[in-house]
Design a protein around this nucleic acid. Structure first.
Lengths: 252, 252
DNA sequence: TTATAAATGTGCGTATAACGAACATTTTAT
DNA sequence: ATAAAATGTTCGTTATACGCACATTTATAA
């Protein structure tokens, strides 16, 4: 992939891959597991894990390693260095207040939606929501509206690499259906995800353009499905999202 | 520092230092700035920035680099891999509901407090609160209660490296005063930070022990100073924190 | 507009960082 | 108790990453 590319630091790539190898399924890794997950040799993986531990990003009980809160500093480097979440927060809060539901700002990152902000006065919608959390783009309203604004080549690449999981009975898994939903989102200028990600969770999202007209962000409101029909979301929440989006776009 | 240490990957250390060089003061870095901030040569810094851009962790407008949301994945690797925030969330929520204020869970990381979770049904207390956000430990209740449970050597090291900023007129900046406040927190088993971090912000915190009796975490409630006196916080909120702490400790 | 300062891109020779295989030892699972 | 898996370590090797120097470009100040 990056073999023989000039000015590339392969050791950084491998080190970041080792950090990313930790996940919910394997919160602790021993050296052999880390080697398997990253494709590194055991000796290499061991060196990276020891280095992370020495730098304070991981700790070890002897044989197993786990990450420490210090790795949040890396994500924090992004949050503190971009004015976007700060600029957007009042608008996200305002949408949350006007709709009485949870509003969110998110970006698309490869095949996942990553949250950049939530309204502060939130009601409980889903089990776990926080900045940095990410969901599969194929079954989120946010993912569809951002994808709809990408080039055909980018969408084709997204679909080509896609291995969609059926997260609920409502989750589309056919690439054709997913593509059609993305196209529909482009036509409508919004998208609704109705219990595709999680039973009981219903979301509506709009894309957000920057000053060059590019779309890398989306705004969404999410709620418990029993609280409002899709039709009412379109009638009552979509206008609030669009108004918030218009205001945010004057700041980008 | 780590020169001549076995099994150390220096390139990973340098790469992570480059990521951490981005902050609120310098959200965008050119090659020369990154070199100065990290102590690397310009050529080295350039290689790391190009590598981060190639891997999608940064982007460049030609000469200036900025981080992308992808670096949140690194922090997310911690959040998704540790059960702690998931386990603690119901308790943090419960504290938030019982007190009607914002409850938080945090860890101490060197000289800073880093938030690991907030109660979901939150009222607006401070401008910006999210997981991963960090504050100076010397003027937070959370920082003091966690520090109070560390070894004398660790506290001495903390104080030796401290360069306290006067964030409000109430912020202690004398190392002697800061040390005394840490000792008092140890005696009391709790601490109150009264507008030391931010005008209008008042917090009370308790330390949380793990099953080995070590303290790496704290639980806190924060509120607008006008809403409750310090005496009332001690009388009414401290018991709720202690109850929540007792419950959380059974799970650690 | 011009001069100066700052930043950058690149090539290339060099040093050592990181590699990986092999082997002995330890830990874990059956 | 045995087998499987994991680990720690050594050491020769390779290629990764370095850093300097120089030419070029960009930004800033006059």
């Amino acid at each position: 992939m990056t073999d023989d590319i000039k000015d590339h630091v392969g050791s950084l790539e491998k080190g970041l891959a080792v950090i990313a190898a930790f996940d919910g399924a394997t919160p602790r890794l021993n050296v052999a597991q880390a080697a398997r997950k990253t494709g590194l040799t055991r000796a290499s993986a061991r060196r990276y894990l020891l280095t992370l531990a020495r730098l304070g990003y991981a700790e070890s009980n002897g044989r197993q390693f786990q990450l420490t809160p210090r790795v949040l500093r890396l994500g924090y480097a992004y949050l503190s260095s971009t004015p976007l979440p700060k600029i957007a927060q009042p608008i996200v809060d305002q949408i949350g207040e006007r709709t009485g539901e949870v509003a969110s700002l998110a970006a698309l990152e490869n095949d996942e939606v990553v949250f950049l902000g939530h309204s502060t006065t939130r009601r409980l919608v889903s089990a776990s929501t926080s900045v940095g959390l990410r969901f599969s783009a194929h079954c989120t309203a946010l993912g569809r509206v951002i994808l709809a604004a990408q080039s055909e080549a980018d969408v084709a690449r997204f679909l080509a690499d896609l291995q969609p999981e059926k997260l609920t009975p409502h989750t589309r898994t056919s690439v054709t259906d997913i593509h059609a939903a993305i196209i529909q989102a482009g036509r409508d200028g919004f998208s609704v995800s109705d219990q595709e990600l999680e039973i009981g969770l219903r979301s509506i999202a709009v894309p957000v353009s920057d000053s060059h007209g590019r779309v890398k962000l989306g705004l969404a409101v999410s709620l418990q499905a029993g609280r409002m029909s899709v039709a009412d979301m379109i009638a009552n929440i979509l206008p609030v999202l669009r108004a918030g989006r218009a205001e945010l776009e004057t700041m980008l």
